[in-house]
Design a protein around this nucleic acid. Structure first.
Lengths: 236, 236
DNA sequence: TCGGCATCAATTGCATGCACTTTTCTTGCG
DNA sequence: CGCAAGAAAAGTGCATGCAATTGATGCCGA
């Protein structure tokens, strides 16, 4: 064992490896909407052949993180503003469910885990902005995982990543996307509060995030060309 | 044009073709939980190589319809009773959203489309039971599509298929899984009623379906071995 | 200088081949 | 007669090769 460097080690799942790497890169804004993802490059980077990279891109496309058009190079998905809104709308619904499932049932150990994640967020707050989306997402995903319901976990995880992508597309770079204190309040509400109240807090939290990021997004960028030109289309 | 039979025609997407074929087969109960899905056979059946079949299986696994374990043959997923319950729980939440989106906004044409689907269900009612799940599912999926929200559409579609699989695993063969009249009531409620009321009706409808199928499922089959043997474990 | 067109490098789509793993069948033994 | 060990068959995991498509480059005429 402890052999050289590549041939037999993580052999297990380079596919999953590629997927998670790309997901993380998207949350970190290292990959931004529209960025190209050539199969060769991907495969080469991870010591796999195009076959694997291709398969990974297929999975990511199924998750809505990658756009895959025939005979064209794969690109990181470019969410429209409407899609972004729909994503956050549904995210609210799903995460409300998470909170309803969890309210009043957190074990001490789970509390500790969540606390640790929030601490990490707090520390990273002093660093660059890029990591904040990822850490915030990890918090929300961990919450979902605590429900133990695999379907809910999968959907929440997926939609959190897509929301992160939307934030990357529309959020202002320096906006504090997920206020750390809000996560703390959330934990407290889930631990003590009545389920409905905790769920409402989650809803408010997510609305706040979406609001901060998307409210005036149309002013800032990515507007449809039609929309941009509309005012200029009047005769005279 | 009008060439022979295979080489250049549907070339476009044999992958999607395989996926939809398997999905339909699952809803029709032609494929049942645990059925084997060898790559070769699949590819051969659809005039594609294993590469494509493999990719298709990957997609279906991502949707939760197929179980994919390393070096083992793919099988149609075998939902546990808990999973089945979680699926229906989340399905209720998602389809409530669909109804809330649609309530009071159906166009005349949309009404006609839904009516047509219910008619088809009514006709098939006289035929064998197998088709009823698929037609009922098509009704629910069509409703989701009418929201125009791609994320909602994707999740509802997926969860409907998984629910169909759960029904296939636990539902009694002769149970009328989706009462046709309930779908009619649903349409009416969505057209006229206040959103919340329509959503409640959808919830009641789905609870009824799940209840009919899953309530006593544990009595009928698929019990855990531990559970089965528990009464016999007493000493003496 | 600019737009259209041919050529070419880069890239995807897919099948096939080979190594390895699992499953099934067979055969010999208790 | 059952059953376990081993051999053969079937199947998966993955890389690579080749044809087809695309996007870019450069050329030429206006």
């Amino acid at each position: 064992m402890g052999d050289g460097q590549k041939t037999k080690r993580g052999q297990g799942d380079r596919l999953a490896q590629i997927c998670t790497a790309i997901r993380r890169a998207i949350l970190d804004r290292a990959l931004r909407p529209g960025d190209r993802l050539p199969e060769d490059t991907l495969g080469e980077r991870f010591g796999a052949s195009r076959t694997i990279a291709r398969h990974a891109l297929g999975q990511l496309a199924a998750e809505g993180l990658v756009d895959l058009r025939r005979n064209r190079m794969a690109v990181v998905a470019i969410p429209s503003l409407d899609e972004a809104r729909d994503i956050f709308d549904l995210r609210v619904v799903l995460e409300r469910q998470v909170v309803l499932n969890l309210a009043g049932r957190l074990t001490a150990q789970q509390m500790r885990q969540l606390q640790a994640l929030v601490d990490a967020e707090h520390k990273a707050r002093h660093g660059e902005d890029g990591m904040s989306i990822r850490l915030a997402t990890e918090f929300h995903v961990k919450l979902a995982e605590m429900t133990g319901k695999s379907i809910l976990i999968r959907y929440v995880t997926e939609i959190c990543y897509r929301a992160g992508l939307a934030l990357s597309a529309f959020g202002r770079p320096h906006s504090s996307d997920c206020a750390v204190s809000e996560h703390l309040d959330l934990i407290e509400a889930i631990r003590t509060g009545p389920p409905e109240k905790a769920a409402d807090l989650m809803e408010a939290h997510l609305e706040a995030v979406a609001g901060r990021a998307l409210l005036h997004a149309a002013d800032a960028r990515n507007r449809d060309l039609m929309e941009i030109l509309a005012p200029y289309a009047e005769p005279g």
